[in-house]
Design a protein around this nucleic acid. Sequence first.
DNA 1: CGAAGTATTGAGAAGACTCAAGCTAGGTGG
DNA 2: CCACCTAGCTTGAGTCTTCTCAATACTTCG
Lengths: 252, 252
Amino acid sequence: MTVTHLRRQEDRDAPASTARAVDVASPNRMKCVRRCMRRGERLYGAGDVFRMLYVVRVGVLKSCIVSNDGLIQVTGFPMAGEAVGLDGVSTGIHQNTVVALEDAEVFVLPFAQWERWARGSADGQHLMMRTLAQEIIRSQEQALMIGVMRAEQRVAAFLLDLSARYQRLGYSPSSFVLRMTRHDIGSFLGLKLETVSRLLSRLHHEGLIQIQGKVVGLLDLPALWRLSGLAPDGKRRALDSILNREGELPAM
Amino acid sequence: MTVTHLRRQEDRDAPASTARAVDVASPNRMKCVRRCMRRGERLYGAGDVFRMLYVVRVGVLKSCIVSNDGLIQVTGFPMAGEAVGLDGVSTGIHQNTVVALEDAEVFVLPFAQWERWARGSADGQHLMMRTLAQEIIRSQEQALMIGVMRAEQRVAAFLLDLSARYQRLGYSPSSFVLRMTRHDIGSFLGLKLETVSRLLSRLHHEGLIQIQGKVVGLLDLPALWRLSGLAPDGKRRALDSILNREGELPAM
DNA sequence: CGAAGTATTGAGAAGACTCAAGCTAGGTGG
DNA sequence: CCACCTAGCTTGAGTCTTCTCAATACTTCG
């Protein structure tokens, strides 16, 4: 993968890229600039001015919210096709901090451009709203998970969520690598890292999963669903992305 | 308060009101229809088709999300000026159920009309996005609260949140009535009702609050802030509402 | 190879939950 | 108007889950 390595340092106050953020191949077939990220690199941080939306192209990121007194909570692990940066829309200042958990690549879409595009058609506006609203549901579901499920259920649900998302991307739903640390998982689930570790071990001993460090195998999906208390619903329709796989704004 | 009592029964599939949802006083000074609600009445339920946005005018509502396996989590207690119904935007089907905790009144704004209005100007579009994005932040903050704070902190934070919101509405920030049951509070905070009750009693004995049934007094705000672990930040800017106090779309 | 970050596992403590009983207040009907 | 009834609230005792602290092992990377 030999993509031009654009600006590894933060672009906190560097609108430089804005100017050439779009490869104007043709009026409505414009390709977004990509940004490569190294593992651990920050995409943006809480407090940064919001100018860009991102769509993950490859890799897994981590998004955290930091309360004004320093409490940290992981809000998600965005993967290919998922939009990142919406947390800046409401105030113009990012509330979350996003870092790459492995070498990754994202499309960079100037928000102003997206807005312009969205205003161009009712469908575009619709997509924009759905994208935002989808995040509302996601966060509410996270709160629900943390609020009502017991630790073991949360861990199972977490694994199943990853499984479904990997599957959607064409990877194996029953065997993948956890890109995040136990601490990250714990923070996402409202648990301590030791608890996460213990429960993964427990699921292993119970024969539901296989785990060795970061490599997981889901051995008994039905049992995991049962344990999680959730329905394996196919309801999880693939949400239309704000960019297609080539980094172009969808035609509408 | 002798407002016409419009349609107490659900309007699940009754677009009837859509037609007369707006009092066209003048082209851009249109007033929304109001809907009165009795205590316990449902505004809409999970699964209902999404057609309307609402803005609370008086009273306190309760919004819950129900997972596909029946778990319930309260997602908020919307009060005057706050938008309700955004949970339907992403799929066109409401994910939440909203009921009135006391006799209440809401503005009813057909979503399509709001969309049209929003498309009319960049500012309108902006406001629409901010409104949605604000909900994202809110839900993320709820997840954070449930995920990282201990029970006593959550209860304190909950009281302080109510306090701030009442203050913004011109009511006393240190003395108000809890419209929701202990069970509701527990569900919102990820706790059992007994725990909520115990902790309220504890705060009472510690002299931080006064509580008698549903009537609370916050006796030592600084101590509550300290306990909650949060900063009493004035950062909580009053978000612009999608409707002004008369139920008109803001001029833009 | 060494160092730092990450993971596992144990033992004990603390927090929150469950179950259960009694209490309170608000609304209803006699 | 009072008595009752019900939903909601409080409080206690005991249990279970999860956290904390701590020691040890593993891995990754320079």
